[in-house]
Design a binder for these strands. Structure first.
Lengths: 118, 118
DNA sequence: CGTCAATATCGACAGTCGTCGATGGCTGCG
DNA sequence: CGCAGCCATCGACGACTGTCGATATTGACG
């Protein structure tokens, strides 16, 4: 599965309803799970560091120093981001290269900007 | 401020200097604080319920039943959302009316989609 | 095969979070 | 004035989270 952000949007976009249906509990749960992965300053910095790194990918040893945390902690945060579908993990030899999942952040942003609007 | 990102260039094959400035720790902290307010299924549902409610506003008594939680818990969640700048609180008589802050969600979405892109 | 380096996993600990019942402060109305 | 209803705050409790050090796993290289 890519992400659980595929909101149940029907193709009835011609007539904007006066009152939109609120988000369903399962959809809220799924969106909250993704947002929980993002709602940590260290993980936001890790995402940004990976994105800004040369080639758009970085390994753990590139990230421990900038965030100033231990290697197991950084590894843990990266796993959270991978499980949330925001990062990919590509192990080449001894090194594990992490990269942004294309469009993942945009999907979250789109849901926030459209699905919760009245 | 331009923090001196001394890029400790080692002789390691995996470490390379950053090519763009990542998000600053204070910015990450601020964004994480907002995302933390959003990263809860109940609060997402409350936001959606308020947005979908007649007139774009709702009081606590309108929300306790749909989310199925106690009144103090709903009140607590609404306070979190107000403190995060996502909801406004307007007390008229005995009732407290909550409404979406215009553009607040769009701002969060924009930061997610652009600031973390690298 | 033995060693070294990069990562992942484990166990533990302090801090935070979501939830509840009880309580108190307000406001409107008899 | 006194009662009733709406809401916020308080105190408590279980659950989850971020962090660490220690340890296990894996691949590269003599």
């Amino acid at each position: 599965m890519t992400t659980a952000l595929h909101a149940t949007v029907e193709a009835q976009a011609c007539c904007a309803p006066l009152v939109a249906a609120p988000i369903s509990p399962p959809d809220a749960e799924a969106l909250a799970r993704t947002l929980k992965a993002l709602a940590d300053p260290t993980r936001l910095r890790l995402l940004s560091l990976v994105a800004a790194h040369e080639g758009g990918e970085a390994c753990v040893c590139d990230l421990t120093d900038p965030v100033g945390l231990s290697q197991p902690t950084v590894s843990h945060h990266l796993k959270v981001l991978v499980d949330a579908g925001l990062l990919t993990r590509d192990k080449r030899g001894v090194w594990a290269y992490y990269a942004l999942v294309p469009g993942a952040l945009d999907s979250v942003a789109a849901v926030l900007a459209t699905r919760l609007r009245g």
